[in-house]
């Protein structure tokens, strides 16, 4: 874990807090679209995207690759009053406060072979998209940005404009989104990739538009910032080490149920992507919903955050 100090806080727009974190000297480099897991309560981490260092000349100095040997980490976090508490804790941070975070994790990188990158951002999803845009601007890659914005609530809109110039298109009205996506994706040059960060509805709309324009799935990338609930049929998990039984309700994930029972389990993305919560399964068939385990690894392991026992099964975990 990195021991960091809050150097500055700002409110770029209503409901969003930007936080500048520093360490002792340069911090670990990170790829575009990377996040850190910020510890908001002991053992509880939330992933937040790293955005490029702002500067008077734009969001990043053009003379150094974004993400290389940063002096500071910049995060912008939307307040979720009904969330578990992570965003409320971040919004309460003040300069001088100490926080702990994982080193950068990469889950949403650009595809280097693309001839053109279409970046789609909705709401606070602008944060990794900003990092992608800064990266492409530095390396001279072809890109465009589609920003779905409700007036007044998108941070970094000015930063994006500074980076992307006339390569930025905006929809401020929900009804304008389909046409914006359609035009961009049907007209995208050969060998484009599209990257979306935003609410599930926007991600689904981009995927559907791309599919209609005959894009193959490997060209469509997304990072959801609202966790899809890992719900399903209730089941029981037996913890081998303690012999305890934990009942998992229909409306919660196995990880939620373990939290409720006070059982410590590692986790980070809570989307079945990062692999942090992968746990050994001693018995019971699993309905796998993650995207991290290979077929041979699924035999005997599960991602606690999204996967569940198969209907009618009990899973026994090495926990």
């Amino acid at each position: 874990m990195l021991e960091l100090r809050v150097a500055d806080v700002a409110t770029p727009c209503a409901g969003v807090r930007s936080v500048t974190l520093v360490g002792d000297g340069p911090l670990p480099s990170y790829p575009p679209g990377a996040h850190v897991g910020l510890e908001w309560a002991p053992g509880r981490l939330n992933p937040y995207s790293l955005t490029p260092t702002p500067s008077p000349r734009g969001p990043t100095p053009r003379d150094l690759p974004p993400g290389l040997d940063p002096e500071e980490y910049h995060l912008s976090i939307a307040l979720r009053p009904d969330g578990e508490g992570g965003s409320r804790r971040v919004h309460a941070l003040a300069p001088g406060d100490r926080v702990r975070a994982t080193p950068p994790r990469s889950s949403f990188p650009p595809v280097g072979t693309a001839a053109h990158h279409v970046l789609v951002a909705g709401g606070i999803g602008v944060t990794p998209v900003l990092a992608h845009a800064a990266w492409h601007a530095f390396w001279g890659n072809s890109f465009e940005v589609l920003l779905v914005q409700r007036p007044g609530v998108t941070p970094h809109a000015a930063d994006l404009r500074a980076l992307a110039g006339d390569r930025l298109a905006r929809a401020t009205d929900r009804t304008a989104v389909p046409a914006l996506l359609d035009e961009a994706l049907r007209g995208a040059p050969w060998n484009s990739h599209v990257y979306t960060c935003g609410p599930p509805g926007l991600i689904a709309a981009v995927a559907a538009t791309a599919r209609r324009a005959h894009w193959v799935a490997d060209r469509v990338h997304a990072e959801p910032f609202v966790h899809a609930p890992a719900t399903g049929t209730p089941f029981t998990a037996v913890l081998r080490r303690s012999g305890r039984e934990v009942a998992v309700g229909a409306g919660e994930s196995l990880l939620d149920a373990l939290d409720r029972a006070g059982v410590a389990a590692p986790r980070l993305c809570r989307q079945g992507v990062c692999g942090e919560c992968v746990t050994e399964v001693a018995a019971g068939r699993v309905e796998h919903r993650d995207t991290v385990l290979g077929d041979d690894e699924r035999d005997g392991h599960m991602a606690l955050c999204v996967s569940r026992a198969a209907v009618g099964e009990t899973v026994e975990l090495q926990l």
């Binding site: 990170y30 950068p104 692999g275 385990l293």
Partner: peptide, 10 residues
Amino acid sequence: ERFLLRLHPG
């Protein structure tokens, strides 16, 4: 390969 894909930066 899966192991390498899952490594963290650095």
